[in-house]
Design a protein around this nucleic acid. Structure first.
Lengths: 326, 326
DNA sequence: AACCGCTCCACAAACGTTTACATCCAGTTG
DNA sequence: CAACTGGATGTAAACGTTTGTGGAGCGGTT
């Protein structure tokens, strides 16, 4: 039999109410009693029953993270940071993978919002409307997306793109291709906005290679388009895409970085292991997860402005970028 | 206000007990009533409160997975499979990352075993004793470890090693180095056992390069030892280690596969993206996660023999292995 | 001596379910 | 016709906690 609050109460001759309050650290119970109760609880190995607690408080003991793909190391890092922070707060972390499928995401959201009252959504695919609906029922924090009225944590997309392009321009590139992510991606739209905001000197231009799935397969298509467009450098929406670009360029005999420079985004762990190591924008993924969880744990007072956190990113120059040929 | 079982009961003029039974599909309630209740519940958007249910049934609604590192794609794949299966069963998946730290693992286990009654442990570091203790309190399934009396799901380690070595021998290698994993690793001990069981023809030998942390850093050390030992091929404990070996060999100007062959284990997604693509043993990671969860969901009758599932693995020959020089 | 105010604690209600047991009614049997 | 049977439903207890309300004890003031 597992020890309940009643056992603790009996053990130190007080009522269960006192035990509850003592363990909660309420100052209303005398310091001596509090200590005595703590002692007894520790000795008996008492663990409060979460279900019972949740039933009465209404507040859940877990925070859920919904992400499109655990195999993508961007998201697994976010998950790592998130669960670390959540666990440190004595709560439990739930994680759901939607397999990049918007329908699956809907379903997961329905299911999860009934179980959990605090949700972190990484790169949600659902509509703004569904999102605000959801926020009625749960506390929600968005990752990689911003929406007025909702808390969010994102990397500084525009600045990351600016760093990439500036780097390439400095190397002497004049025609740079942008291999975009899915058109539904909020991050992609921000990165495009960043591109548009850049004041390019005369004779230098950014070529839009199109929108691609953020996968290696997408990168293959992008690489061919880059060659056809005659650019000397490609800025990819993210590292996954860049990986595909790199692979395809190798296949087609285009030397990187001699004939073509490639820059990614995210700095997934593999990026530095590739041949050549990938120049890419480092995003503090673990910190994103931690901050998102933090927002839900240190529950802000109701009417305070919802935090929209933007974390700074930093270009990691490696060997996949170099001056253009000639 | 969220709709409770009482609302449903009122809506169709029955008692809450009937609603509970109807929704559970109990045949004791008349088919007509059952349908009427279902209808009403659906219309009202009724979602049973899990905390309340858990409180009375004692059975938890979630299954937890404990793993050493979410950033390692072996584990994130296992997590993917696990949570997929768990969610399909209408339960929720919790995931905890121990950062490869045995102390953290202990702590996590303590914490989690109080919250959850079904646990999946991937590559647990804790002692056999602690593990059997834990199994008293929770249903436990082990991944990458076997223990008499506990359910487990593992890849066929010995056979994977056999495939690797056979492949290298067939290519003509005569001195092959084994870069082992941590000595506390159950998988490593199985792989070593697999090595020992191999009947090597005369003039061919396996050199034990030692035990290394399953990280890139470990691989660096292993690579230097391999060169010193004069082997023409290295079989690494896993892909992480192989990555380090590959990197270090490149640094030291040893051409792979011309001067040295390298074989990994796990077939993480990056393996095929490396230069050269890594020959490695493919382990069905997602399936491992699914099967482990399945064992806990399709709860076997108490006294049936505990399943110890061994999944087959398959060598993927890529470009990092080739005939030895000369 | 009566009263007040304070601190510390106990009592009991509530949270939303599941489930053992009681009840009721209609139909069947002796 | 009374007693019984058994299927369908209702009643109420229990799960382990949190928390509002009230009361005991006590030192100090009038």
């Amino acid at each position: 039999m597992v020890t309940t609050i009643r056992d603790v109460a009996r053990a130190c001759g007080v009522s269960i109410a006192t035990v509850s309050r003592a363990l909660a650290g309420s100052t209303i119970v005398a310091a001596g009693t509090r200590e005595r109760v703590r002692q007894a609880a520790a000795e008996l190995g008492y663990q409060p029953n979460r279900a019972a607690r949740q039933l009465v408080t209404g507040r859940g003991q877990s925070i859920a993270l919904v992400l499109p793909d655990l195999q993508n190391s961007f998201y697994s890092s976010v998950a790592k940071g998130m669960q670390r922070r959540v666990r440190a707060a004595g709560l439990s972390a739930m994680i759901a993978d939607t397999d990049e499928d918007p329908d699956a995401e809907r379903e997961v959201l329905d299911q999860l919002s009934a179980v959990v009252d605090r949700l972190i959504l990484a790169s949600p695919r659902v509509s703004d409307g569904d999102l605000t609906d959801l926020a009625q029922r749960c506390a929600v924090v968005l990752i990689n997306r911003e929406l007025p009225g909702l808390a969010s944590v994102v990397g500084n997309n525009a600045d990351g793109i600016r760093q990439s392009v500036t780097h390439l321009l400095a190397l002497g590139h004049r025609r740079i291709g942008y291999a975009g992510g899915p058109s539904t991606s909020w991050s992609d739209s921000r990165r495009r906005a960043g591109l548009a905001a850049l004041a390019l000197p005369d004779g230098q231009e950014i070529v839009d290679l199109g929108a691609f799935r953020a996968s290696q397969a997408g990168g293959v298509a992008a690489a061919d388009l880059a060659i056809a467009a005659g650019v000397s450098a490609v800025v990819a929406f993210n590292d996954q895409l860049a990986l595909g670009v790199l692979g395809r360029l190798a296949e087609r005999g285009v030397a990187v970085p001699e004939a073509m420079s490639v820059v990614g985004f995210d700095d997934v762990p593999v990026a530095r292991l590739l041949a050549p190591p990938l120049t890419t924008v480092a995003v503090p993924t673990i910190e994103i997860g931690e901050r998102a969880a933090g927002l839900l744990i240190d529950a802000a007072p109701q009417d305070s402005p919802l935090p929209q956190i933007v974390l700074e990113v930093e270009l990691q120059v490696r060997r996949s970028s170099a001056p253009p040929p000639g």
